[in-house]
């Protein structure tokens, strides 16, 4: 479905040098980069940069507004949640949890997806048919549904959320990577490698893999944000990273009931998600324009 066969003319056109870079290609989007770097630093150095402790509760200090509103205090710059925990602190620690969840999930999914895609493209025939059949079946399961079933089955935890999402996500990569690799397989250098007696493993690892790296990088960037959003949806359904761990998704989910009385409880973690996901997407879009313009579907 995704690999649209190319007409001979198009194939020729594709190989012509300079075609893709025609027109001005903008430089990397600065604001998204800065945002991402800032959040990554916050996540890594959470212990040092956060003003308080993420788990310290004080019920009577619950729903304290941000410092610039009446009744706000300097000790809780962004206010507190319903259990009186400092929001800023939890958002900073939440960066660690949510970014890690996003990155690990996509890493796992990419590893499996790339392996499946490359093996299917290299061996073709039955291997390809079986692997793509599996991929098809996986893709036909709505991702939230499976994640929900898994979370309910084995209980929600950080690891299970990662596994549940990766269990479906890999199939998307497998499809795209296979398509990419199939067209690579027609290229001369693969035929040469074969003639030279390279083993399949070596051809896949040394000749195919490096040539799809661009695609992998683009996919990776575009999907981390998606995973953070799916995790949030799972939190809403009660199957996300369990409390009291500060994950952005569950913070938004817990705070959504108070958007009129204590809007800050869900707004700030929501804003963090928005900034990070938007940044990953804009960066990914730019990378794709730059590295792999024909990768359109993701």
């Amino acid at each position: 479905m995704s690999d649209i066969p190319l007409s001979p003319i198009q194939r020729v056109l594709r190989r012509l040098p300079g075609r893709r870079t025609k027109g001005r290609v903008a430089g990397p989007p600065l604001i998204p980069l800065v945002i991402l770097v800032a959040f990554v630093l916050a996540a890594v150095f959470a212990e040092w940069v956060s003003p308080g402790e993420p788990y310290r509760q004080a019920l009577r200090a619950g729903f304290r507004p941000p410092v610039w509103l009446d009744a706000g205090t300097w000790s809780n710059l962004l206010g507190t949640d319903r259990l009186g925990r400092d929001l800023l602190t939890r958002i900073i620690y939440g960066a660690r949890v949510s970014l890690t969840a996003g990155v690990i999930t996509v890493l796992v999914a990419t590893a499996v997806g790339v392996a499946v895609g490359l093996v299917a493209a290299y061996f073709r025939g039955r291997v390809d048919a079986v692997l793509m059949q599996l991929t098809d079946a996986t893709l036909s399961i709505p991702i939230i549904l499976l994640a929900l079933i898994l979370a309910v089955t084995v209980g929600p935890s950080f690891g299970n959320v990662v596994l549940a999402i990766a269990a479906i996500l890999w199939a998307r990569y497998a499809r795209v990577i296979r398509g990419e690799a199939l067209s690579l397989m027609e290229r001369d250098f693969i035929a040469l490698a074969r003639v030279a007696g390279c083993s399949p493993a070596r051809i896949i690892a040394v000749h195919l893999f490096p040539n799809i790296l661009n695609t992998v990088v683009v996919l990776f960037t575009l999907q981390v944000g998606d995973v953070i959003i799916v995790e949030a949806a799972l939190s809403f359904l009660g199957a996300g990273i369990p409390p009291p761990t500060p994950a952005w998704g569950s913070m938004v989910a817990d705070g959504r009931e108070f958007i009129t009385t204590a809007w800050w409880v869900s707004f700030f973690p929501g804003l963090a998600i928005l900034m990070v996901v938007l940044s990953f997407n804009l960066l990914g879009d730019w990378l794709r324009d730059r590295l792999d313009p024909k990768l359109r579907q993701i």
């Binding site: 944000g225 949806a233 989910a253 938007l278 997407n281 879009d285």
Partner: peptide, 9 residues
């Protein structure tokens, strides 16, 4: 992209 940058709920 905004549409998929905030949790749907």
């Amino acid at each position: 992209i905004l549409g998929q940058s905030v949790p749907t709920f």
